[in-house]
């Protein structure tokens, strides 16, 4: 199932990040459906200090490819557009950058490569190694809890509050998506 511009807009609207950001203004990165190395990992950021937005986008997209189910395509453009709205001047945007820095620094020290260059299995191991699978989200917690909040749940929230993400589960109008006051009346599709 393909994630569309509407999904990214919906995910942003669900969490209040549309303010002031024109969706789709940025070039969407090419997305051919997953697999490591799809995106060129040529970000100028060298792994030191806070990552720039381009590096955040690369890393978040790479992580999304393991968090999202196989049958989802269009991940690169979706995450990119979603982050257009999330990487604003807020405390939240800072939290995302800092958590991505944790993930990148672990990737570099354990695998000697940025997240985007790891295989899917390595990215999965990396997130589990960081404890982001068992941690409960907490924006002010341990590294694992912050990665869970700002990276893992950030991306899962984006997917499953969008119409396409909801539809995967059987609800085209999921909580958080303003999908109208008709779908609740309709029978199974």
């Amino acid at each position: 199932m393909e994630l569309t511009r509407r999904d990214a807009a919906a995910a942003l609207a669900a969490i209040g990040a549309t303010g002031g950001v024109a969706l789709g203004v940025r070039r969407a990165t090419d997305d051919r459906g997953g697999g490591p190395g799809d995106d060129e990992a040529d970000a100028a950021w060298d792994g030191e200090g806070p990552p720039d937005d381009e590096a955040v986008r690369e890393a978040m997209t790479a992580v999304a490819r393991v968090l999202y189910p196989e049958e989802v395509s269009g991940i690169g453009a979706f995450v990119d557009r979603f982050l257009d709205g999330r990487l604003d001047g807020s405390a939240h945007a800072e939290g995302v950058r800092a958590a991505v820095a944790e993930v990148e620094s672990a990737a570099r020290s354990w695998y000697d490569a940025p997240v985007a260059e790891l295989s899917a299995a390595e990215r999965d191991d990396l997130l589990r190694g960081l404890g982001a699978d068992t941690a409960e989200e907490d924006p002010g917690g341990t590294a694992a809890e912050r990665v869970r909040f700002f990276v893992v749940n950030e991306l899962l929230l984006a997917l499953y509050s969008s119409p396409t993400g909801g539809e995967l589960v059987g609800i085209e109008n999921p909580q958080g998506y303003a999908g109208g006051a008709e779908s609740y009346q309709e029978g199974p599709r």
């Binding site: 968090l67 699978d133 929230l157 995967l168």
Partner: peptide, 30 residues
Amino acid sequence: NYAGPSPVEMALTGDDWGDPLLERLRDGYG
């Protein structure tokens, strides 16, 4: 009109992601 779990809330708890998570959501919702 709101019996049972909301998939998006379910998705944010648990130690799975990817296909196993989707499987769990499909089992839990509907």
